[in-house]
Design a binder for these strands. Sequence first.
DNA 1: GAAACGTGGCC
DNA 2: TGGCCAAGTTT
Length: 375
Amino acid sequence: MAKLNHKDAPADPRGTGERLLAWYDRHHRSLPWRMPPARIAAGDRPDPYRVWLSEIMLQQTTVQAVKPYFETFTSRWPSVRALAGAPGDDIMKAWAGLGYYSRARNLKKCAEAVVERFGGEFPSDFGLLKSLPGIGDYTAAAISAIAYNRPVAVVDGNVERVATRLRTIATPLPAAKPQIRAFVQSILPAARPGDFAQATMDLGATICTPKRPACALCPVNGDCLAFLGDDPERFPFKAPKAEKPKRLGAAFVAQRRDGAILLRKRPETGLLGGMSEPPTSGWTARQDGEPGLDAAPFPADWQPAGVVGHVFTHFELRLSVYRARVDRAAPEGCWWSTAADIHSEALPTVMKKAIEAAIPGATLKPTPNRQQRRN
DNA sequence: GAAACGTGGCC
DNA sequence: TGGCCAAGTTT
């Protein structure tokens, strides 16, 4: 890492924003939900519905993971009114696999609120946006700036990294947030708040990365205190993460003679809230041996079918999977999901893993080339 | 302020 | 392999 002396002190910080915009004009990423800077300059604005939807999907989620979901949602529900009118279960099914399912629950609530409170038009005001379900500080600022070009500071994880490096802010997150927000506000170009927000995020995603940042390519390295006199990779400062506890549980995959699989719906709140699953044991903090057949939802010829590992945000799960052939009506609260339906159920990834362990191929989409198995 | 809340990719 | 991280919000 280059260490420059004091003669190379940062240029006028007020120029940082303009330099970021000039870089963005040339090197911006092309994304499905983004209006490119040339069209912004021509007077176009992005659809606030698409901005909102993309921002919710992008919370703690990579661009690559979001792309296909964004395409699915916007094709199926082209407007906030369409989404507000959709059955909640359809939204959960379409969200399955993307994670953080409270986002999907809040998505419908927010769409309904926009229709009822604002006549189907997203507000531009930060405070009004933040009053909507699922919209916090970041998302309210992002919609306000990107969709409406309001001069608000948009601070996400990328911007936190860029800002703490530019100013060598050594206060650990999240305590450093006010400092960061104030700094970003101070360099915000008044004419192009939306482009500036996206420019800063693009810089963080492609140049000012967490590990091995490409400082030589950075358009504002001359403004960066970390680059000029420190080690950029040290920033931002964060508290060490707590160790993940390990939990054990069991899943019971019952299959009917025609191939249908028994599912039920999880409670609306909490982990995987509102999503579907094969019957499972609880998996609270138990470490005293694998859950056994006493946790089965009903008596059957349960056979061990392997163990599935899955890492959640705050714990690791080892799920013992059992399988049985069952020929009976679905118990109260459960339903038989046929081979034709199983692909479109609201199954979280961990539950697809469990079903796959018991019945390989069961949750894969049928292809024209593949014969459906019927036993 | 701290904990809950998913998943997949990268090194 | 396992820890880190990704356009955070809610309670």
